[in-house]
Amino acid sequence: MVIKTHDLSFRFGSQQVVNSLSLQVPEGSIFGFLGPNGAGKTTTIKLLLNLLQIQDGSIEIFGQELQSNRLFILRQVGSLIEQPAIYTHLTGKENLINRARLLQMPLSRVTDMLNLVHLENAAHKKAGNYSLGMKQRLGIALAMLADPKLLVLDEPTNGLDPNGIIEIRELLIKLCKEQGKTVFISSHLLGEMERMATHVGIINNGKMLFQGSVQELENISQPMVHIETDNSVDAANHLKANGYNVIHATETVLSVPYTNRETMAAMNGRLQQQGHKVYSIYKVQKDLEQLFLNITQKA
């Protein structure tokens, strides 16, 4: 595990922001840290970077306890927290040069990073005049400057246009696949995470509601059988009368929880016998977006 927290808790005054959080982020994963706004994501990230002092619980990064190995750990971590922190009176390139010197990185890395995030043409422009998307990209370049093993990114695609989002996504996937980096990335958009994350943690009100691989998340979502008929209301009533649990019916489609293939065939047969025209009958996995909403709203 690259990141491992045990019963991590944090309060701002009387408000419990993080509550007994036990994170497990495997090496080489893209860990999507999901939750609605105000769920405690940024606070958790600040705890992971030692910007906030741990009140309860413990944090291990690269197998080392954070507090006592702070510099060793930070040497291998690149981060972007909330809005990118950029010196607005310096140019994009100067921001990178300043950081490269502090990290004792060769200045050639600065050009590499500018190219990587496509800011080469805006390198000599004051960062204060950058658009939000450009600032975000510069923030990502700053985070990756030292070629860290672990990238901690807090909502890195905020303010990016669709192209920018796709670029960042592909870049992160590439970093993980080709260079074995671990990415811990927070977001409130599951749809975005679905496309890149290998693992997911869902947090709400400071509590972890789900943690596991994307596969595991899909598995906990109950599949449904959608049946398309000529008269779905009648069909639904008929199925209900025969003991099937119809959850949802619209004019064209009705939904029944999936149990097995035989039941699907039996439902089909019954409807046919009653003279219903069955246009299609198929199994669907519950939408993760829906699942995410269910998980966070139940809590």
Partner: peptide, 16 residues
């Protein structure tokens, strides 16, 4: 310089 650019957080996440 740090207040304005909100860069305290990056200063204190440097390995320094």
């Amino acid at each position: 310089i740090e207040h304005r650019s909100d860069t305290w957080k990056t200063l204190f996440t440097l390995p320094i």
